[in-house]
Amino acid sequence: MHISPVLWQFLVKWLTNSALFPREASTIAPYADALYFFLLLITIVGLVLVGTLVFGFAIRYRKERNPVATQVEGSTLLEATWTIIPLALFLIVFVWGALLYFRIYNPPTNAMNIYVVGKQWMWKSEHPGGQHEINNLHVPMGVPIQLTMISQDVFHSFSVPDFRVKREVIPGRYSTVWFEATTPGTYHIFCTQYCGTKHSGMIGEVTVLSPEDYKKWTEASTSGMSLAQNGERLFASMGCNACHSGNAAARGPNLAGVYGSKLRLANGGEVLVNEAYLRDAILNPSQHVTAGYAPIMPTYQGQISEEGLIDLVEYLKSLKTNYRVQQTLTTSESNQAAPMTPEVVKP
């Protein structure tokens, strides 16, 4: 049969460009693949075993060879065998899978934090230095990256198959995932949770750069304002410093150095202050009243966008002293500029 050369070339190109196995581009990938191959082995052994039994018996005891069946009731020993062996294998898989799970979902403490906001149908990444990207994420190679993610509308799911990581991006709460890329290149970002019309268009790319290239990229693409600086501006314009001034007589608790500390709450509980806590305390303040303070803070639900909240959180994380808070306060008081009622801020 004659195949036209054009068609032939097309077929060769088509087949060589097709993928069969994802690249291993993060430190986690080899661990995930090891478990995958172990399970693949179990599957193949199980299938071969069942296949051999079924076909072996079917051939050996087919009616032509064995016209009369011998009745057998069963065998407790055999039942025990095929209860215990699969159980033992599954338990190994369970422990192995659990270890991997904890590895993927517990970021190392020195991880670099990047925020990701999902919305129908795009990914927005916010770097601490103020770089904003859409459907793109530039990261340095060899550095653990933690993504703090939130959705503005529906459930999304942030997946980078070549890193073997994925996490649901949920409206109303932060979720995190981390990875450390090992090879420079670009990798798919997929939204894997069905999120409406353009679900399959909610894709992007992670670009892994060498540390030098990454440095160049950060310098070239900064907007001039870090997230914390944006947050500081927002903090002042919302009038937060009116209460959170850090003065002894202030109506709100001192926020300098609050990030990472253990806080005693008015309801007697004790919490570790992290990103999720800070965000929640802005939106639902009455559930997070610090011990010794009155529940007078208004809610900012619906008044600050998720990006604005990220700015504020980053600002609070960077806040080590109250010097600048008080500076802003004096200026705003003298100008009477700080609005007492919060207004909608949509950066």
Partner: peptide, 8 residues
């Protein structure tokens, strides 16, 4: 009295 966020 409840704070507004809790009242919701």
């Amino acid at each position: 009295p409840l704070s507004p966020d809790m009242a919701r």
